[in-house]
Design a protein around this nucleic acid. Structure first.
Length: 222
DNA sequence: ACCCAGGGTCATA
DNA sequence: TATGACCATGGG
């Protein structure tokens, strides 16, 4: 008999439940303030998080985790402090671009009043803030129901046969946001769980034997 | 020694 | 629209 075809929403929820049952609450984003989330979102671009932690620790040690301070810092000094996170010259420039824009928008108090689509467009207008960085900020700093797409998400959903990982960013994001109810807590946990699973199991070379999604992942996972 | 990591911009065809 | 070059440290 033919197996019933599940809707994408049900598939995505099923994957979510398995990940949650296995990994539990991820408690994201690891940061002490919304502004720290934003800085981390820029620093973690194509970079392992452990190195971002070192960079942020340096900023805190030098009392520079502040928009006004960071915006007025000599670029090479900022670059020196964020060095462990890689791409330090271009990231120093991006952070200063962002901080000047942030201050001009009256910081968090000013930005939080904007509707999500307006805020998203505004974030994307900052040089150095692309779609994933903007969505990290929207979800984890402003608590907006935006689903973050990253390399882990593409790889996992592609291997599960649920989504085509080669789609463009906006198309993939729309697929998630249409299939799932807009729920900040769900989106927050889901993305964090995908990253956790991606770091441990769903690697470029998959470690199929340990995969908690075994029973739900045909093909490429095995 | 090689590959990868919680991407984005810019030049080119 | 769609590739490719470039950015650069640190861990496995």
């Amino acid at each position: 008999m033919a197996r019933q075809k599940l809707s994408r929403g049900r598939l995505l929820l099923s994957v979510y439940r398995r990940l949650y049952r296995h990994y539990g609450d991820r408690n994201w984003w690891p940061a002490d303030s919304p502004f720290e989330v934003m800085v981390g979102a820029v620093l973690t671009q194509n970079t392992a998080w452990i190195n971002v932690e070192r960079a942020i620790a340096n900023l805190k040690f030098n009392q520079a985790l502040d928009a006004k301070v960071m915006a007025e810092l000599p670029p090479q000094l900022l670059a020196k402090w964020i060095k462990p996170s890689g791409y330090f010259n271009i990231k120093a420039k991006r952070l200063q671009n962002f901080c000047r824009w942030y201050l001009a928008q009256n910081g968090y108090r000013g930005l939080r009043k904007k509707p999500t689509d307006v805020l998203r467009t505004a974030l994307l207008s900052v040089n150095g803030v692309g779609p994933e960085t903007a969505d990290d900020i929207l979800l984890y700093a402003f608590d907006r129901p935006v689903f973050v797409i990253d390399a882990y998400t593409r790889r996992l959903m592609s291997r599960l046969g649920i989504l085509d990982g080669d789609q463009k960013y906006e198309s993939l994001r729309a697929d998630f946001e249409v299939a799932l109810k807009p729920d900040v807590t769900l989106f927050n946990q889901y993305h964090a769980l995908i990253v956790e699973h991606g770091k441990n199991i769903c690697r470029p070379r998959p470690r199929c034997g340990d995969c908690v999604l075994r029973s739900g992942c045909p093909g490429a996972m095995h």
